[in-house]
Design a protein around this nucleic acid. Sequence first.
DNA 1: TTGACAATACCGTCCAGACGGTACAGTAGA
DNA 2: TCTACTGTACCGTCTGGACGGTATTGTCAA
Lengths: 184, 184
Amino acid sequence: MKPRKPNSRDKILAAAADVAREAGPGNLSLDAVANRAGISKGGLLYNFPSKARLMQALVEQYLRDFDKALEEVHSADGRKNLLSAYIRLSVEECQETEASASWIFSAIAEDPEFLTPLKTFKRQLFERLKAKTPDLKALLVTYLAIEGLRSMTLFEFHTLEDEERQLLIDSLLSLAGADSNIAG
Amino acid sequence: MKPRKPNSRDKILAAAADVAREAGPGNLSLDAVANRAGISKGGLLYNFPSKARLMQALVEQYLRDFDKALEEVHSADGRKNLLSAYIRLSVEECQETEASASWIFSAIAEDPEFLTPLKTFKRQLFERLKAKTPDLKALLVTYLAIEGLRSMTLFEFHTLEDEERQLLIDSLLSLAGADSNIAG
DNA sequence: TTGACAATACCGTCCAGACGGTACAGTAGA
DNA sequence: TCTACTGTACCGTCTGGACGGTATTGTCAA
């Protein structure tokens, strides 16, 4: 479909995430992103005609990547347990220090509406999980706990020690794996 | 200790929270807060000599209020189950539409360091919970799930229906209440 | 083959507006 | 008289973004 775009856009998106992480979410300026991407401000605005478009692209790329990764993880173990795949992917994502999607805070500060696609994505994913998980209680608890883990990573609350964290993950996976043991 | 301060400071703090919620976290300007509080900008800067001090005060007030409320809820049922009190308080807090502490996003955008007191508060609270909760697994799962609930409220992800939400809360409370049933 | 034109992908500069903060003179109540 | 402001004027800085250029590559008729 697309005529093999050069990687300028991707470079800019990555630069934006880097700037948000390193300079703080409130300092995500076009100049800073342009510098970081090794491009001029004019060039940036050529690729993304406004800051809003840049934010939008950031959200869209994140969603696309997450969806793709989920599909891979889920397929890799025979599409048996979506919840378990979701947990493992989320945990993995939270471990990458490089990830720390603090550009989300920039987006919210810019305009909370930027998160609308994220909201609908989450709602749809939850519906899928609900359809595929027999034990609703276990789903609710594990899903929310993962959401909590994501939040703590995002805000950089280092409340849990490594051991506690590992114990938590084990508990969640065993709750999620319960669909073949306990299934009502 | 303090000479019965007039309520100007409180009015300003409340106004700041209102502005962040209504105008968006990125539009928390001193002018906007002053207007909202029905005070002049000079008056605002008389009470809080810089925006940083205002943010700081916002965080401190939130922490003080939460701590006080937790103490009340905990005492009210005989100081039996701290985790259960924590869950009930957090759930209550998430239900107040008026709360929606989106000033947190403003603070983060301003400077992530503003959340340092929040971090230490959370860590200490978790330690207290750990000391008082026999079942560490249950604590981890419920604590994280509450953190998830808080995050979803903050971001206004309306992923859960009312029924699902209620089922979740019941599950968490029963997990938390387990300290007298299952206690190892 | 070549010259004319056009699209792509930028660069660098400039500007208007917003924002935090200062300064200061005035004032009303305790 | 002191405290706790109000109100206004102003400054310096930062930021989004508009705009006018430019180098490179592609297209295509003559």
